[in-house]
């Protein structure tokens, strides 16, 4: 997965060559992260065959499974996004980060990564149950993460411009609320998904 991100970053480095403005730098980063998220999370339910699912079903409650998956995916996404930020900054330059509020930007990255993970975990589960892999996941997931992507891009753009916490905190609050609601929905709905 990390290899995927690194190659994407390297390709964009080769493609861009010159310097990037703040807006483009930000947009490109989030697009790379978005596709990385789709790739990483689509596999979270794919590797399970019928037998293994039944085995899990006898051991634990489905809610424990979905919570574990969400936590694991969120953790993966946070690590992945921070690492890709590192490589991204390495290849595409840190010029835009000079005027930025780095703390805010990191909060935006972490919240965005967690948001992608929570939304896409349930979508991955639905796609896997429908017996159709990455294609269906992209169709189902994309419109649902799009508004989140817009909000998080705007928040990170603002933090790159170095505005005050009081401005960005509404975005962060909104994203946090979104994460909480998504996790609650997954908690409520997942048991129905597993029933056969």
């Amino acid at each position: 997965m990390l290899l995927y991100v690194v190659s994407a970053v390297y390709v964009s480095y080769l493609a861009v060559k010159g310097g990037l403005g703040v807006a483009l730098w930000n947009a490109l980063f989030w697009i790379i992260l978005l596709f990385a998220a789709f790739n990483a999370l689509s596999r979270s339910f794919q590797r399970e065959d019928q037998g293994r699912q039944l085995y899990l079903h006898t051991l634990v409650h489905p809610r424990s499974v979905v919570m574990a998956r969400t936590l694991y995916n969120a953790f993966t996404m946070v690590v992945l996004s921070l690492l890709s930020l590192l490589f991204y900054a390495l290849f595409l330059g840190t010029a835009v980060l000079e005027g930025a509020d780095l703390g805010q930007f990191l909060v935006a990255v972490v919240l965005g990564a967690i948001g992608f993970a929570t939304v896409l975990t349930l979508i991955a589960a639905i796609a896997a149950r429908a017996g159709n892999g990455l294609g269906l996941m992209a169709i189902l997931g994309f419109p649902l993460v799009l508004p989140m992507l817009l909000a998080v891009m705007r928040a990170s753009k603002l933090s790159l411009d170095g505005v005050a916490w009081s401005v960005t905190s509404t975005y962060f609050g909104g994203l946090l609320l979104l994460d909480v609601i998504t996790v609650t929905l997954a908690w409520l709905l997942f048991p129905y998904l597993w029933r056969d």
Partner: peptide, 27 residues
Amino acid sequence: KRARLAAIYNIFAFVLLVLFLFVVPRL
């Protein structure tokens, strides 16, 4: 199976959609 999966997606999507339509524009 179609009825159940579609219902799950619909519930999930509608709640998120209401949030997006009525909360994000306020931001």
